[in-house]
Design a protein around this nucleic acid. Sequence first.
RNA 1: GGGAGCAUAGCUCAGCUGGUUUAGAGCAUCUGCCUUACAAGCAGAGGGUCCUUGGUUCGAAUCCGAGUGCUCCCA
Length: 890
Amino acid sequence: MDISKNFEHQQAETKWYQHWLDQQYFKSTPDEREPYTIVIPPPNVTGVLHMGHCLNNTIQDILIRRARMQGKNACWVPGTDHASIATEAKVVAMLREKGIAKSSLSRDEFLKYAWEWKEKYGGIILQQLKKLGCSLDWDRTSFTMDPDYYQSVIKVFVDLYNKGLIYRGKRMVNWDPVGQTALSDEEVIFKEIDSKLYYVHYQLADGSEGGITVATTRPETILGDVAICVNPADERYAALVGKEVIVPIINRRIPIIADEYVDAAFGTGALKITPAHDKNDNMLGLKHQLKAIDTLDATGKFTTAELLDENPSEQVLAYQGMDRFELRKKIAQDIAALGQLVKEEDYRGQVGTSERTGAIIESKLSLQWFINMTAFMDKNPQVLEDVMNDTIQFHPEKLKNTYRHWLSNIKDWCISRQLWWGQRIPAWYDSEGNFVVAATEKEAEAAYQQQFGRPSSVVGGLSQDEDVLDTWFSSWLWPMEVFKGISHPGNADARYYYPSTTLVTGQDIIFFWVARMIMAGYEYEGKRPFKDVYFTGMVRDKQGRKMSKQLGNSPDLLELIDRYGADAVRFGILIASPAGNDLLFDESSLEQGRNFNNKLWNAMKLVKMWEGRQADSPGQLADSQFAMDWFGARLQQVKQELDSLMSQFRLSEALKTVYSLIWDDFCSWYLEWVKPGFEQPISPEVYANTVRYFDELLALLHPFMPFITEELYHQLASRSTDLCTHQYSAATPPPAALLQQGELLKQVISTLREARAKNQLKPKESIRLHLQTSHPANYDSIAAVLKKQVNASELLYTTKPVANSIVVAIESEKFFIESEKAIDTDQLKAELLKDLEYQQQFLTSVDKKLANERFVQNAKPEVVEIERKKKADAEARIQTIQESLAALGA
RNA sequence: GGGAGCAUAGCUCAGCUGGUUUAGAGCAUCUGCCUUACAAGCAGAGGGUCCUUGGUUCGAAUCCGAGUGCUCCCA
């Protein structure tokens, strides 16, 4: 069979992924094995694969493939999130392009479009994950709006309501005037934005001289002012507290009050209070029993609706319908026209924006549904405790602090959204504003009858709440409901797979999702939802900037997979990904991955070349014995290292370890050591061993790079099984002496090669190697390899220096390189002198340490022993060098 | 404003409970090689005041304090 020059990834990827699917290797059903469960962080149904997904899912696939090869029942559940606001925004945009306004559609008509859109474009991302090689159990694909899932969300809402943990109330919410919906605190992104600070003068109501000047960034809310507040300790204003001032333009009389909340150092030290439009103002308003006057509507435009009692002037009425930012300028001008705008200055401040639409958030009073988080946490203290005591283990651990901090300052969760795409809130209202909460209209009717003692028809029937639930109110059930643990409690799958084993997700959704899954897990299963949480950092570009559409620095992943191959992409993204830190993505790491593919491919070609050259060859076998023994030991050693690294989730280091084992130990050392001479036969035993080692390496690498390893596994020999389901054998403790001798051999080879290079001995020029050692037995097993690796025709033991040779000292042993070529003794001497100086300085530092009585007294005996050995080694080395110099006639 | 974290080679990072030579790896750089698997390669080399500064200790990249710079989270 002809072997292609390089690994052809496209072909291999298609072939093997299909084969794995056909063999149902990714399919999992409960059995007697230990389960290893991962639920995918469900990407938005509208999403396309980006770098973050790539990192995240590569890691999950590595964990799941490794678990599968360790004999566990590996189950990785795919799925998508309906992403209410993000999806609805896309559907609205799509309709707008068709010339259809959302407002012209009924709820049902809109949802029909949305479902059509979801069927057409939704879940593209899941197909893309296949390209990356992800071994998901596709039969288990879930969607947060599947009928059962939908019902489970409704069920949980009703249940929490009945438990008194959900309430409806008029509260200050974060209002997105573009999306026209409330948002939870977590959906608000604070940004630094340049604005202006306006200094506005309010005149005293009694007509007397003076007044008070207030600094505000939001003059457009001035018509909703109900008080001016100063710090009670602020002497400047002490005399004014209790007096009234006039709000410019609208001429409302408002009091000057005092509260310690006010920072006397900010602006003028006087704060205008607009309880309808600012969270802190609202808090002060409640405390001082002030009215809230709302002057902005749901779209952020001025409305006089709540001002009509005050007989507003023509000027005020003219603002009707004006956008908040336009209004800001207009009101500033109008105040200036009154001569009450003292000054304007530039100001840079934090402004909340919507995570989804980017719009600047308004704080707005509105009637919404909330979860009482304080009560919830009192009921479920394990949510915090079990993370702090590592029942649920966070990686990296430092995120425990962040988690604790958030939970100990937790605010009520606003869960209603003024959208149509999502689970509709199961609350039912009569025409008088009474309501009941029930899963279905029928149940609602019954509940109504019971609660109010009359059928709802008396007051015109019941109508359901128009709003839907926050997306996270459905995804917090994900680890349970993908196994139908909420909709069909106690079913076999849920019992077997829950709690899941590991969650892999981004640090950015620790509050949105991770914390809430833990909450739901304890509330509904009484158990943690997962054992380990691995948090990935953010993927940034080479300059450390976030990947974004605007910057255009977000590479097209499918194109990268096409160009470098899925294995190389997986390698590249993981090798650059330090545990718990952000990842600076650079295409050069993909190149490294591709080069590694190439290396593996060529190693396979070499071994395949030997396949047909097997013949009994006792000499070749004997010469290779050490290499075989040593590599066997190295393999066990690395297997142990990998177990340890993987259990600590140090995946990047684990990959580096396998990479170096394959590239350095296997290719650069082992294969060279057993390689037969040109067109010489190879011993069948050596060949069989080599293939066996290669198999083991492929198995270790397979979770990281599944395609090329499967391909090579089948190229190397004809097989009846696949690497994908190969079972690892446990690592055995490697013999330390063998490993040590291997290190000695490597060191000797490197040092001799370096000496050859420095003396301009071409690799082809053969040498005679003389060795002066007190332990010749150490060299018996490695002599053959040593000769081959430094191109020595002979290895001779000697007891005295060899004339006209290059001298190399390694510890207390001396090597003499004898060649046809004349030796540059001056250079040799210079080298030796340099080494001598280094050794002498080193000796001095060790001596100093040993001369320190307090060191010898206080340090642990083994540490002192190490120092003594260092001293002895250095002294021996110095002696060797001096003898060599003497032999050179120095 | 509150909290958390980071600072080690040109870049990205290891360096776990202080002592394994005078600090390691990968990538990049430089030198020599188209050596019979691989130039997407091989063999070598150079490169660091472990941010600054006090302290604890026989001993500090490692522990503690202060400072500086950066990052993230929360308000």
